[in-house]
Simulated scan of single mutants.
Amino acid sequence: MTSITSGGGIQVKEDVYYYTDQIVNIGFIGHPNSDTWVLVDAGLPNAAPEIKSVVVDRFGRNSKPAAIILTHAHFDHVGGLYDLIQEWDVPVYAHELELPYLQGEKDYPKPDTNVEGGMLAKMSFLYPNEAIDLGASVQPLPTDQQVPFLDDWKWIHTPGHSPGHVSFYRESDGLLFSGDAVITVRQDSLHKVLLQQAEVNGPPRYFTTDWQAAWDSVRKLAELKPETIISGHGSAMNGEKLSKGLERLVNDFEKLAVPKHGKYVNKNNLH
């Protein structure tokens, strides 16, 4: 699986860049050639060599991040993580509710192939759901919502897609790394993923296990009125397309995001 944007990167701000690894985005926060920068998520399995290549181009040879921060621990966001920390020996931060999936204690629920949707949803039985074990390399994000090494950023708990999913927000310019809480492509549709058709969407259906929490998280992010979103899947988005898309998603979440059926769907409890 890949998309037309795979292997390319976009500089959204002078100190914010993201790179697309096939169908998932990896963030880099820090000025080019800076000694202090942070990696956001770690892509698909075997992504480490690609990530290191981007690092060389952006920050210089032998550079490494001050830390790696995770939106969540699904396989397509932690794929290169083990190899990276073996070489870099840097701390990894995630929400405390994600730690069991990062310390080998608990597997995620299996993907829901019963949700209606496109080919990627039907293929989701192939996607790994097993925990990885980073041991003491991973630790919880600070309880005060500060992001390590990034004084002007805060983390926001946005569960639903996973119990400890978080998003990262910088109020000074309204920049939001939304992870998979809000994405800008219809992730269950192979056609839309391949062409990266930009539209504001809820989280990927096949891996989301708590739809009420997912809706609440979308509301929480929309209330921030972000100027720009960099999501886990899809292209960065800003302006009226983003604001109108978020408003529509909040108001019509059940229709636009929630599957009509599936083992994690109980529409009677949604509000």
Rank of each mutant, 00 (worst) to 15 (best):
residue 168 F to P: 12
residue 168 F to H: 13
residue 168 F to A: 03
residue 168 F to K: 06
residue 168 F to Q: 09
residue 169 Y to K: 07
residue 169 Y to G: 00
residue 169 Y to C: 04
residue 169 Y to F: 15
residue 169 Y to V: 09
residue 169 Y to L: 01
residue 169 Y to E: 02
residue 170 R to W: 04
residue 170 R to D: 08
residue 170 R to Q: 14
residue 170 R to V: 10
residue 170 R to C: 13
residue 171 E to L: 09
residue 171 E to R: 13
residue 171 E to H: 15
residue 171 E to M: 08
residue 171 E to Y: 08
residue 172 S to T: 15
residue 172 S to P: 02
residue 172 S to G: 02
residue 172 S to R: 11
residue 172 S to F: 04
residue 173 D to T: 14
residue 173 D to A: 09
residue 173 D to Y: 01
residue 173 D to V: 08
residue 173 D to C: 15
residue 173 D to W: 01
residue 174 G to P: 11
residue 174 G to F: 06
residue 174 G to V: 11
residue 174 G to N: 05
residue 175 L to E: 04
residue 175 L to V: 13
residue 175 L to N: 14
residue 175 L to T: 15
residue 175 L to G: 10
residue 175 L to H: 08
residue 176 L to H: 01
residue 176 L to Y: 00
residue 176 L to F: 01
residue 176 L to Q: 00
residue 176 L to R: 06
residue 176 L to S: 06
residue 177 F to K: 06
residue 177 F to H: 14
residue 178 S to L: 00
residue 178 S to C: 01
residue 178 S to P: 01
residue 178 S to A: 14
residue 178 S to V: 01
residue 178 S to E: 03
residue 179 G to W: 04
residue 179 G to R: 02
residue 179 G to T: 01
residue 179 G to D: 06
residue 179 G to P: 02
residue 180 D to W: 12
residue 180 D to I: 12
residue 180 D to G: 11
residue 180 D to P: 12
residue 180 D to Y: 13
residue 181 A to V: 01
residue 181 A to G: 02
residue 181 A to S: 15
residue 181 A to W: 07
residue 182 V to P: 00
residue 182 V to S: 02
residue 182 V to T: 01
residue 182 V to F: 12
residue 182 V to W: 09
residue 182 V to A: 05
residue 182 V to Y: 05
residue 183 I to W: 11
residue 183 I to H: 03
residue 183 I to L: 08
residue 183 I to P: 09
residue 183 I to F: 04
residue 184 T to Q: 10
residue 184 T to E: 04
residue 184 T to A: 14
residue 184 T to Y: 13
residue 184 T to G: 07
residue 185 V to K: 03
residue 185 V to F: 12
residue 185 V to L: 10
residue 186 R to V: 09
residue 186 R to I: 10
residue 186 R to P: 00
residue 186 R to Q: 07
residue 186 R to Y: 10
residue 186 R to H: 04
residue 187 Q to S: 14
residue 187 Q to D: 03
residue 187 Q to M: 09
residue 187 Q to W: 06
residue 187 Q to C: 08
residue 187 Q to L: 02
residue 187 Q to R: 15
residue 187 Q to P: 04
residue 187 Q to V: 03
residue 187 Q to G: 05
residue 187 Q to E: 03
residue 188 D to W: 05
residue 188 D to A: 01
residue 188 D to Q: 11
residue 188 D to V: 02
residue 189 S to C: 03
residue 189 S to P: 11
residue 189 S to Y: 08
residue 189 S to F: 06
residue 189 S to L: 05
residue 189 S to T: 05
residue 190 L to S: 03
residue 190 L to V: 02
residue 190 L to R: 04
residue 190 L to W: 09
residue 190 L to Y: 15
residue 190 L to A: 15
residue 190 L to T: 00
residue 191 H to M: 12
residue 191 H to Y: 04
residue 191 H to P: 00
residue 191 H to W: 15
residue 192 K to I: 08
residue 192 K to F: 12
residue 192 K to E: 14
residue 192 K to N: 14
residue 193 V to M: 14
residue 193 V to T: 13
residue 193 V to K: 04
residue 193 V to Y: 13
residue 193 V to H: 12
residue 193 V to L: 05
residue 193 V to F: 13
residue 194 L to Y: 05
residue 194 L to A: 02
residue 194 L to E: 00
residue 194 L to N: 06
residue 194 L to F: 11
residue 194 L to T: 08
residue 194 L to M: 00
residue 194 L to C: 03
residue 195 L to F: 00
residue 195 L to A: 01
residue 196 Q to L: 14
residue 196 Q to V: 00
residue 196 Q to H: 07
residue 196 Q to F: 03
residue 197 Q to I: 13
residue 197 Q to E: 15
residue 197 Q to R: 15
